[in-house]
Amino acid sequence: MLLITCPHCGPRDEVEFHYGGQAHVAYPEDPQALDDAAWAHFLFYRDNPAGAFAERWQHSAGCRKWFDVVRDTVTYEFLTPEGGSR
């Protein structure tokens, strides 16, 4: 049961949150302009580091806001102690 700090609500139990995977993956400006490989990479390829990982969470059972944090995927420690951004 991770303790996740929502930037709007403060620290809360993991079960209040929904995980969103890697952060900062923008939807392509013009998907039609991408070739199949580039589109496949947008769709299916995400970073998967063992270590610091910028990721998204939604406080789905709370304020319902999405936010970004950096978390260590090995120690599970949140490296953005004051809560995430956005």
Binding site: M1, L2, V15, Y19, G21, A50, T73, V74, T75, Y76
Partner: peptide, 13 residues
């Protein structure tokens, strides 16, 4: 468990 993790452990819930 929902999140990416390499800790070989998950949540008790």
């Amino acid at each position: 468990d929902s999140y990416n993790g390499f800790g070989q452990r998950g949540g008790f819930h």
